[in-house]
Design a binder for these strands. Sequence first.
DNA 1: TTGATATATGTCATATTTGACATATATTTT
DNA 2: AAAATATATGTCAAATATGACATATATCAA
Lengths: 104, 104
Amino acid sequence: MNTKKKKLLETAGWRVGSTDDFLSLTDEEAAYIDLKITLSKKVRQCRERENLTQTQLAKCLKSSQSRVAKIEAGDPSVSVDLLIRSLFALGVTKSELAKMLVSQ
Amino acid sequence: MNTKKKKLLETAGWRVGSTDDFLSLTDEEAAYIDLKITLSKKVRQCRERENLTQTQLAKCLKSSQSRVAKIEAGDPSVSVDLLIRSLFALGVTKSELAKMLVSQ
DNA sequence: TTGATATATGTCATATTTGACATATATTTT
DNA sequence: AAAATATATGTCAAATATGACATATATCAA
């Protein structure tokens, strides 16, 4: 998958509302990027709800502040695995995760 | 995260019903493994529903038959990214993915 | 403003994930 | 039964993700 394209799209994702049929992505690619953006926003939401700093969340994750920043920025170097593990570390359950996917 | 432990748990996951508080995993670890098992089962279900062979799905994914076998086996070497991209390649939507998480 | 704290961004060595291959084992077809 | 097809398992070089670090830029309190 084209990393440059993903980076571009993700960056654009914060400026425009939707990400579909932009730069002629396949449906799978669009769905995947859309998912990542959704999850990254949720990580920030959950972290702020818990009144944690990026540094504190990083400690929970045995990671670093800079990586948490990238998680929340939807950086292409961040996997869905890490996004989901971050949410689980923030106490999100599987059914809550499911709800996150449907609520826009 | 302990790969050996994950492997063991995932193998056990096919024999016993539940995977929680087995081998003293943290909640996050248990949730993560549980998710992987759920998704891997769904990939097989969806592929069979579409009457595709592992080789055919592999072609869609630009991957290989052996990796598809590992995806469906919940192999520890398979990321949640790949599991989810497989489902998207099989035409699953984000809201269908959400339903998959809640239905056991 | 200054200092303190929080977040963002770039880089990089290491770790993990990947497709591909070989090959074993099921499963189905003839 | 044998042949054909499908799936499983082990290995490995290459690709990608990762934590850590430096450092830039916000944000906010004094």
